[in-house]
Design a protein around this nucleic acid. Structure first.
Length: 667
RNA sequence: UGGCCCAUGGUGUAACUGGCAACACGUCUGUUUUUGGUGCAGAAGAGUCUAGGUUCGAGCCCUAGUGGGCCAACCA
């Protein structure tokens, strides 16, 4: 197997460089550190994919570490959900660990720091401390307890631990620099008193370590080589390194690896939100049915919706890793799931919006079980039987009494193919008193070799099973619902994100199990929802098929204008501009050729079209040359010189590019 | 009135300093097809935010500007 030259992202570059500088491959170790205070969403999948992906790439262990230092928000339920989600995605962690496993070690180190005069107990209100901390643009000032004696600090900290004080009365702080430009370095809190039971340590502790103190040291204890997190932690890196430096000297032999924190941009998805807090609001306000509502961007939501682990991993891989803010088009996610399901999902027929068709020359009471291919993309998928009879349902959209010849579906007098069955011809309609069509009458022929433009899906009315279909649309109408300073994301909620439909499906689906995925032919991919009971089959629409017909219909007539224009020649000036772009990069022979082309095209350019090009940035020499050539032609054809023209020529004469100067001189 | 990070087609990512900036999605053509799907073939779309500088040569290095993001929780 030849290693394909896949380009590396910046994190992989860093690792390769570390490896090249002597880091042992065996020393590579990663971690994914969720806080068990909510459900994982598609954004987390990126972080999961990066660290676990690196683990797979380098065959290195990846720890799943729950960052559980805040008993007020964390629960076992979330631990379980997170584990289930990561497993479902197909990743395996080396060790399941908890920051709380390290509480004693962290405490011991904190004592060491106090003894060194690197940490102290502060006994002010949080308001007072915030006051002294300053702002991003103003330095902070030292507080009154900053220079307590080591003995006093030791005594106070011990009594904090023993539960002698109330919440909020004392904290332990690192003693760094209240004037530091990085606010995180202004004597950050290491411990606070919290008299709450912890989901793992119970009531063992009433002081809990803060994130910065805990996270880096947990990395260090686990000997993580590369600690990868999202961009907002960049300012924390300085503190991460500071703590690490203090602790390292205590045991450089037993814990030699100093972890390295690096940051990447988190993933944003268009038409949705990623904030746990905002997602929670959707749940609490019953906008959705729960964290696993199929419209939610949570992993559990996507799973219930019918997304496959493969498609999500592929998505995260395709999205890439970099440091700039980004918004990924949901169309990419949809592409990934279609790509996966196209290869694997069995095809079946289902009618979501039925209209009755009577095949008048088909015998009443006759039933044929016709052979249908399960998946033409998969030779192993085999065949099944579908029942055909005199009365069937087709989609309302698939019939028009009359239509132009761009419409491939059923009309009166025209023939279409019924998928897996015969060819029918529209003969007439039956209408109710209001003029609504209630039945379409057709005749059929068994000659299936006839060429027809359209193929329709259908179900036999007598054999069809009823099912509930839940069709989803995006939850928000805005591309970036939480990116508006002046508007609340709740204002953009799509009131029609869920549509319930009573559908008619082919009888083979009677056996469908929860979680099974199908392609309803010509409609999209669907899966069987958890809510399914023995009486009612319920399907979720995962994603629709691409629909170029719908796109055509949606486009107004302007479409024609556009195609009309694009069919006709592009404007000469545009072509000239494009040719000019690359002019200076070309070898001389080719330059000559391009020049001739430009001179020819210039004959069809008006001065009004050319003048804007005079403002071309000095740097874009090619475009200026092309403009100069064009100008020359115009002048020869009788264009009068004006101030703009003279300026343009003058500036060109002063340029350092010889070609430009030469062409300017030629005028 | 600060510090740090970022800036490449519509979107997301590539590009060991050296040939006309690559890939994916999206868009558009054509074609195949018992899915207006898939497949196949192709097209349009970028002078790499701006202005300088270094260099024979800059998307890449330097300076300044502009634009965007992050930083003032006893959250993570």
């Amino acid at each position: 197997m030849s290693e394909e030259a896949k380009s590396l992202n910046f994190i992989e570059h860093i690792i390769e460089e570390d490896l090249a500088n002597g880091l042992k491959k065996e020393a590579l170790r990663f971690r994914f550190p969720p806080e068990p205070n909510g459900y994982l969403h598609i954004g987390h999948t990126k972080a999961i994919g990066i660290s676990f992906g690196l683990g797979e790439r380098y065959n290195a262990p990846v720890n799943l570490r729950f960052d559980d230092t805040n008993p007020a928000k964390e629960e076992q339920e979330y631990v379980d959900a997170i584990k289930a989600d990561i497993s479902w995605l197909g990743y395996k962690w080396a060790n399941e660990v908890y920051s709380s496993d390290y509480f004693q070690q962290l405490y011991d180190w904190a004592i060491d720091l106090i003894k060194e005069g690197k940490a102290y107990v502060d006994s002010q209100s949080s308001e007072a401390m915030a006051q002294q901390k300053g702002t991003p643009t103003q330095p902070g000032v030292d507080g009154p307890f900053r220079n307590r004696s080591i003995e006093e600090n030791l005594d106070l900290f011990l009594r904090m631990k023993n539960g002698e004080f109330n919440e909020g009365s004392h904290v332990l702080r690192a003693k760094i620099d209240m004037q530091h430009p990085n606010m995180l370095m202004r004597d950050p809190l290491m411990y606070r008193i919290l008299k709450k039971a912890h989901h793992r340590t119970g009531n063992d502790w009433c002081i809990y370590p803060m994130y910065d103190w805990t996270h880096g040291e947990s990395d260090y204890i686990e000997q993580i080589s590369h600690s990868l997190c999202s961009l907002e932690f960049k300012p924390h890196r300085e503190l991460y390194d500071w703590f690490k430096d203090q602790i390292y000297k205590y045991q450089p032999e037993s814990l030699p690896m100093l972890p390295k924190q690096r940051e990447f941009a988190r993933l944003n998805l268009s038409y949705t939100i990623m904030s746990k807090r905002k997602l929670l609001k959707l749940v609490e306000e019953k906008i959705v049915s729960g964290w696993d509502d199929p419209r939610m961007p949570t992993i559990s939501g996507l799973r219930r919706r019918g997304y496959t682990p493969n498609s999500i991993r592929k998505f995260v891989e395709t999205v890439g890793v970099a440091k700039r803010d980004n918004v990924i088009d949901v169309a990419l996610l949809e592409f990934c799931i279609r790509e996966d399901l196209n290869k694997t999902a069995p095809r079946v027929m289902a009618v979501l919006d039925p209209i009755k068709v009577v095949i008048t020359n088909y015998p009443e009471g006759k039933v044929e079980w016709l052979e249908a291919e399960n998946n033409q993309e998969d030779d192993a998928a085999g065949f099944r039987k579908v029942p055909f009879s005199r009365e069937i349902y087709i989609e309302k959209d698939d019939f028009k009494e009359e239509a132009n010849n761009k419409y491939f579906r059923l009309t009166l007098g025209k023939e279409v193919r019924l998928k897996n069955a015969y060819i029918i011809k529209g003969e007439g309609v039956v209408k109710d008193e209001k003029g609504n069509i209630t039945e379409i009458h057709c005749t059929y022929t068994e000659d299936t070799t006839i060429k027809v433009k359209g193929t329709l899906h259908w179900v036999s009315i007598a054999h069809a099973i009823k099912a509930e279909v839940r069709e989803y649309d995006r939850l928000f109408l805005d591309e970036a619902p939480d990116a508006h300073q002046d508007k609340n994301f709740m204002e953009f909620i799509n009131p029609n994100s869920l549509k319930l439909v009573e559908a008619f499906i082919e009888p083979s689906l009677a056996e469908a199990q929860v979680g099974d995925r199908f392609q309803f032919q010509r409609l999209g991919y669907f899966n069987v929802d958890n809510d399914t009971t023995s009486e009612t089959l319920i399907f979720n629409k995962i994603v629709g098929l691409k629909d170029s017909w719908a796109k055509q219909v949606a486009k107004p007539q302007q479409n024609n204008v556009v195609t009309e224009r694009s069919r006709s020649e592009r404007k000469a000036i545009d072509v000239i501009q494009q040719l000019g772009k690359k002019y200076t990069n070309l070898p001389e022979a080719k330059q000559e050729k391009i020049k001739a082309e430009i001179l020819e095209l210039a004959k069809n350019v008006s001065y009004e079209e050319l003048e804007p090009l005079f403002n071309t940035a000095a740097k874009k020499v090619g475009t200026r040359i092309a403009a100069m050539l064009t100008l020359n032609v115009l002048l020869k054809n009788g264009q009068d010189k004006n101030e703009a023209i003279s300026d343009f020529i003058e500036k060109a004469l002063e340029d350092s590019n010889d070609i430009l100067v030469a062409e300017a001189k030629a005028i």
